[in-house]
Structure formats: structure tokens, C-alpha cells
Design a protein around this nucleic acid. Structure first.
Lengths: 332, 332
DNA sequence: TCAAGATGCTAATTCGAATTATTACAGGGT
DNA sequence: ACCCTGTAATAATTCGAATTAGCATCTTGA
């Protein structure tokens, strides 16, 4: 195997010392460091010719910065089943990483006992300058360890504190859901149902919280159901359903229409952005869109801030209202 | 932030040397290394109590392997327009990288003058242990430089020599196209057309070569046309068309049917796997499928070999015949 | 009793790059 | 001849863990 070039090699070729190569490479001019222009040029020429780059490992051992941003996901990034979920985030991440001149390191190696884990016996999480965390839910112990070990990271998606505040770039589900309820109330709806877990992941909890706040504020009735049962909704006199999962909402619309019910005439259906499963695209649901791409971009920016200023950015981006065709005034 | 524990710290606490801690940690018993059970227990106890974990950076520095595989593409990987093309390869790459315990480094930082380049003034290609090259065509100068600099890499897709053999894992287009012609000849076809560039990228050239070999072997007529014109095909008495691009093939079928021609009755259309553009999915073309995912996997394995044994693997994987509905016996 | 052999551990070195302290050498002034 | 001041480069050290050579100490057997 062709051995990797070292600064020592470059130094030999340029007829200088390893230290000089390092100084040239890092453009050091401060603190009484001086390199003659010709020497500098000679070293740079050798570097250019050989395509030498500093070994990130050695560099990182000494100080911390190698313009590598880590991306951790609990599942494979590429398989097409996950593509719809991860892809928009990754587009944003890639875009912004390109902007700030960083490379992306996908932690595909990190697994312990068959499952991916952030901290395995030889976690390479520290290879990167910092790390982005992607996934609907994140292991709380992992999160706590990241915080306590002071590893620079930003979660994509809001996270509750885990032994300390967790830096994140999330979506403002609370406001987004409240807004949908507001619109529905304005159209005359008074009987609401929220369909979905509403618990577990922060993203679920936030949506349900927004729902509860809104129905309380308007003094209307709001029911929380883990699953969408058309009969049950009808029996309870529900006129507007908010579905966490897009595909569940779409299924509900199809089921309703199959039984001769009109949507939104008899039932309004609103989707709350979560598309973890492929959904039929022939149903134009009303609801909101999660700004996934933008979240990816912002997360990279936030991570940059963490690295440069040691801050703990926490930010929620607004979701975009999607007009659709499944929200309308309820029949009297 | 609390400073990380080092082996030195552990050693102090356990009243032994750093070396001993390392030996205990790695369970070394070979090569005349012996640690008294009590000492071992004492060290392990301190490790347990403190929750010490070895710094992976330092470890990597020592064993000269970063366990990072680079992935270079001339365009962004994630944007959905490219997804169909890159994704299957990446699935395979990710899968196999996980298998061999390597992380993936996406070179998002590499650009010079707006475009991504492998070698810019500060190329970071050497950050990775080795590199996978992805893309329909690859800049020949870049390729030559990779070869001459002895950078470990594997191209996905066959490549002609560039100042030396280029390690690659490609698809066996020559055989695949020949096979299609064989089948068509067996059904009675005697007038063939190949539609597509047939030049430029190796993948195009290989297909055309397979076509020419096959028509020569069977003593039938074969014409090469850069574009598919239905009239021209008819005028020339063509009964079987092989289309490089899947979408071109599909368009041809639709056009033929629109003019009242039967496919495959009046015209057989075969697709040669290249799907760089989205194609209508309501046409079940006969042809072959490029084993993209498998190519990704094999490429990672090949790169591993390059790294471990310094070989220059070159391998072509068989394409899979796709039955479809657009190949049949020609009308008399 | 003394060499031979086991046993148990540590000192010293290595990996590659960054940094600090130091040396070497010029030329200028006295 | 001597000191001083810049200037330009290098030697030596650092980071944390892995590894090798080697040093004590203790047993055995003849």
C-alpha cells in the first residue's frame, strides 16, 4: 500500500524541517514566526505537486478542527425506504456544508450489538469537529453523554433537556398546529380530534401540546386518539381531524370517501407534516410542511456557531401552511 | 468542560504505568505479555469506576488507518433530481461500509471555480484512507492524476486506462447488450438499431461495442443512430431498437403506440439500463437492469483490497435481464 | 550456589502535526 | 573585535494510546 505522505516527507523534498512545513501550511506569521518568501514558495510548490493534506487524525489529536462535520443517524441514510424522511434534511446539510467548506462524515461504522449507537467501544464521533444528529427520536442516554462530554453537536429536531440544554434546530410544531386549529375554528369547527402518538418523541409531544393549547384557547372540544378509526370519529361527532402522520391522514380521507363521506364536507382532515412512511400522492391534504431542507441548512450554521463561539443555539423554524383540499366548513 | 481522562490518569490511580493500563485494556496476553490477576483487576476496577474510554483519535493515529472511505461525486449527492441515479450505488456503499466498519466522507468541500474538482489547490482527497469515484463520466486528467499519485481509489463504472490501469467495479454492458441481441435474433429479428451516444463515457461505448459484436456474430444488420426518430426507423425497416437511455426507449414506445403501431408487434424496444433521467413507469420495457446496489457493495470491497494488498481490482458485474413486454417476434 | 527460566511490570519509542524555545547567521553600529 | 538587532529556520516537546525491548525479582534444578 502506498504510504501516506507526511509533513516529514514534504520537509525532506523541500529541504526544510517538518516544523517549517507546518508553519507554512498554517500560514503562521504571528508571534515572531517568519518564513522567507522563497522558502514558503518552495514548500507550497511541493505541497501542490504532491497533493499533500494533513492527516486529520494527527491534527485532531493535537488541536481540534479539521473541517469535517459528522452526521449521525440511527439508521442507514440512503436506503430508499428512508429516503423521503432523511433526504430533504441532507440536501440542506450538504448545501450548507459546501458553503462553509466542510466535508461530511457519515458515521456508518458506529454500531454496537447490531444497532447503530453513538457511543460504541470505539466511537469515532470525535473524528469530526462537531456532529449533527438526525432522527425522529434520539436515545436519551446518548444525548446526556454528548452533553456531559461536551461534544459539539446540534440536533435536528427539538430535544428536551438531557442533563443540560440540548442544542437543536427544530420545527415549531406548537405554533403550526395551533394555526391549523385556528383556521378550522374560524370555519366553524367545534369538535376536534388529534390522531397520533402525541408522546414519545418531542416532535409528537409538541404537536399534541399545540393542539391542546389551541382547543383550550378557543373553548372547543379536543380528543386525543392514538389511532384513526373512522367509526369512532363519527360517533364522537368529530368534524376536524389532525393527523400526525401524513399517510394516516391520507388513509383516513380515502376510507371516508369510500364510505360515501365527503371530505372536507363531512370531515376535515389536516396533516401535521410527519412523513415517515410513503403516502399516496393523490390526496391533497391540507396542513403544514416541515421546512426540512432549511432545517438542515440552519443546523449546519448552528453547529458552526457552537464550534466558533461555544454557544448552545436552540431554534425553531416556522412550518409552512399547505393549502390542500381537505379543510372546509363543516356541514350543519 | 471537564477534561477527559487519559490512560495516564488511570495509571496513576491504579498505581501502575500507562503501558500496563493499555495492556489490560486490550486484553493482551500474547508475545510474552503477562499481567498479574490482581493488578489486572485493580486497573479494571479503576476503569469501571471512572467510566474511562480510550480516545479513538489517539488510537487511530497509532494504527495508521483512519477507517474513513471517501466518496467523490462531481455533483451534490442528495438533491432529489440526482437521487435516482446515485442512490442505489450509495445504498450499497453504505451497507458495505457499515459491514467493514468504515465511515464515509462526502467531499462536499471540494470545489474550484464553482465546480467540484477532485484536485483543487487544497484538495482534501487524502483525508480518507481511500476513495470511491462516482459519476457517469470522470475527468480524464483527474483520473490520470489519481493513478500517478498512487491514491488508493476505485471507480464505480468501468474506466479506460489513464496513464495506467484504473481500478474499477463496473457493469458488463458488452455481454448484457449482446445477450439482448441474441434473444432478439432468436425471435426472428434481422434489422437492428442502436440509439444513443455510443461514445464519450465508457458505459456508452461498451454498450455500442456489445451491439456491434452481436450483429457481426449473427450476420444481421445493425445501425447506430444518435437519436431515436420513429420515421427513420420505419424507413430503414428496423424491427428491434436498443435504446441506451431508458427514458428514450419509453418515449419511443409511447410515440409508436400513438401512431397506431404495436409494440412489440411492429417494433421491439429494448432498454440498456441507463436511467439518468426519470422515465415514465407505465411502460414495462424489456432490457436489463444495472446492478447498482451490488456495484456499490463490491466497490467498497475492492477498495478494501486496494488498501490492504495494493492490488488494482477490475471487475465487471453481470446485468440482470428484465423481462418486460416490449420484445417479441417481428411481424412478417 | 549459580545459571536458566519464568514472571510482572515499566521505560522508551512510535504515530503525524502543531507549537514553543532556541540556535544560527547576517549586517550595523561603536 | 564586540555587542546588538533582525531575520530565518530548526530542535524539542506535546497530544493519547499502542507496542517493544528490557529490567528487576523470584523459582527451579543440577
Amino acid at each position: 500500500m502506498a504510504k501516506r505522505l507526511t509533513q516529514q516527507d514534504i520537509a525532506r523534498m523541500a529541504g526544510v524541517s517538518q516544523a517549517t512545513v507546518s508553519l507554512v501550511l498554517n500560514n503562521r506569521t504571528d508571534g515572531g514566526v517568519r518564513i522567507a518568501p522563497e522558502t514558503r514558495a518552495r514548500v507550497l510548490e511541493v505541497i501542490r505537486r504532491t497533493g499533500y493534506v494533513a492527516n486529520p487524525i494527527a491534527r485532531r489529536l493535537h488541536d481540534q478542527r479539521n473541517r469535517i462535520l459528522g452526521v449521525f443517524t440511527y439508521e442507514a441514510v440512503f436506503p430508499s425506504t428512508r429516503a423521503d424522511f432523511y433526504q430533504p434534511f441532507l440536501e440542506g446539510i450538504e448545501e450548507q456544508a459546501e458553503e462553509v467548506g466542510c466535508d461530511l462524515l457519515l458515521f456508518t461504522s458506529a454500531k454496537a450489538g447490531g444497532k447503530r449507537r453513538i457511543f460504541s467501544d470505539d466511537s469515532r464521533i470525535r473524528l469530526a469537529d462537531g456532529c449533527l444528529l438526525l432522527g425522529r427520536s434520539v436515545d436519551r442516554d446518548d444525548l446526556a453523554q454528548l452533553v456531559s462530554e461536551g461534544i459539539p453537536f446540534v440536533s435536528i429536531g427539538r430535544r428536551d433537556d438531557a442533563g443540560g440544554p440540548v442544542p437543536h434546530v427544530g420545527a415549531d410544531y406548537v405554533s403550526a398546529v395551533r394555526d391549523l386549529v385556528d383556521r378550522a375554528v374560524a370555519l366553524g369547527h367545534r369538535e376536534f380530534a388529534y390522531v397520533g402518538a402525541g408522546t414519545g418523541a418531542e416532535s409528537s409531544a409538541d404537536r399534541l401540546r399545540g393542539f391542546k393549547q389551541a382547543v383550550a384557547a378557543h373553548g372547543v372540544r379536543g380528543t386525543h386518539l392514538p389511532f384513526a378509526g373512522l367509526e369512532r370519529l363519527r360517533d364522537a361527532g368529530i368534524t376536524a381531524v389532525l393527523s400526525e402522520e401524513v399517510s394516516d391522514g391520507a388513509a383516513l380521507v380515502l376510507a371516508a370517501r369510500e364510505r360515501g363521506l365527503s371530505v372536507p364536507g363531512d370531515l376535515s382532515v389536516l396533516m401535521l407534516g410527519a412523513a415517515t412512511r410513503p403516502a399516496p400522492d393523490d390526496v391533497a391534504l391540507t396542513g403544514f410542511r416541515i421546512p426540512r431542507r432549511e432545517m438542515g441548512r440552519r443546523a449546519v450554521q448552528a453547529l458552526t456557531e457552537v464550534l466558533e463561539r461555544g454557544t448552545t443555539p436552540r431554534e425553531l423554524l416556522a412550518c409552512e401552511f399547505v393549502e390542500g383540499t381537505t379543510l372546509g366548513a363543516p356541514r350543519r
